[in-house]
Write a protein that binds this DNA or RNA. Sequence first.
DNA 1: AATTACCCTATAGATTTAATAGATATTCAA
DNA 2: TTGAATATCTATTAAATCTATAGGGTAATT
Lengths: 137, 137
Amino acid sequence: MLSKKTKYGLKALTYLAGQNTKEPISIAEIAKHENISQKFLENILLSLRSTGFLGSKKGKGGGYYLIKDPSEIPMTTVMRVLEGPIAMVSCVSLNFYEKCDDCPDEQSCSVHRLMLKVRDSNLDVYRNTFLSDLLTG
Amino acid sequence: MLSKKTKYGLKALTYLAGQNTKEPISIAEIAKHENISQKFLENILLSLRSTGFLGSKKGKGGGYYLIKDPSEIPMTTVMRVLEGPIAMVSCVSLNFYEKCDDCPDEQSCSVHRLMLKVRDSNLDVYRNTFLSDLLTG
DNA sequence: AATTACCCTATAGATTTAATAGATATTCAA
DNA sequence: TTGAATATCTATTAAATCTATAGGGTAATT
C-alpha cells in the first residue's frame, strides 16, 4: 500500500507544478486545496526539500516553490524520499543494499529472483516518469 | 517493503516445487529447511491453500503438496494471497477497486496516473512469472 | 509585530510478526 | 478396533513497529 505521506507529497508537488509561478506557495494553501492535514504536510515538504528541487522561504509571503522544471524531476527521486527504497527487499536495492540475514545464498533465492524483476520494472517506470507527466492535460 | 509472510510463503512454495515428488511434505520440514517460524508458516500455508494449487493432508505422513505444476502457478495468484492487492492504491486495483474518499476526480489525480503505470508494470511481471521460474537453474 | 517555515515530542491506532494453547483429523501398530 | 502418535487447523494474545496526526515552541522574513 502507498503511504499517505507519499500520496500527499505527490499531490503537493503536482499542485506546485500546476501553478505557473515560481513564487512561494504556503503550506496552508496547499493543505487546504488538496485536503491534507497541514501539520503532516509540513513534515512531508520538509523531507522533500532534501532532494534539491524544492525550495522554501520563511516569513510573510513565504512557502514552498519548485527550483527545477517539472520535466526535470524524475519519480525515482521523489519516491525514494517519500516512500523509501524502490526495491521491496533490501537485497535487491540499488541505493540501500543490505544482505538478508536469513538467506544463505542470494543467487539461489527465489524471493531475490522475483524481486529483482519487480524492481527493474518499477525502476523503469519511475525513471521515465517526471513530475510534468503527472499534470492534467 | 515485502512482508515476511510473503517472503516465507514464496520460499515455502519454491521448496515444495523443488522436490520432485507430489508426496506431502510436513510444515516442520519446510520450516526447518527454510529457517522459518513453524507456527507462522502454518498460517501462511493455510491461506495459500485457498488458491487451489496447494493441497494438504493431515495425520502421520501428512503435509502440504502442490496440486498444479509449478509452470502453471502464476505470481499474480500467489502475490494477491500473500501480499494483498498488487495495486498500491485501491483506485487502480483490478480486483479490489475502491474509490478514494478524499479524491474528487480520478481522471485528474496525479497519484492515480502514476500508480496506474506502476500497477501495469508490476502486473506484467507477475503475470509472466511462474513458480517454476523461481527455481534455481 | 505579524507571518510563516522549521523543529521536537508525544500518542492513538493500525499492522506485522509472531508465541501459545488447544481442537480436529489421519495413520499405524498393538 | 482401539489407542497413541502425528500433523493440520483454529483462536487468542502479545510484543514490536509503523502510520498519521496534534501540540507547542523557535527562527527567519517582511
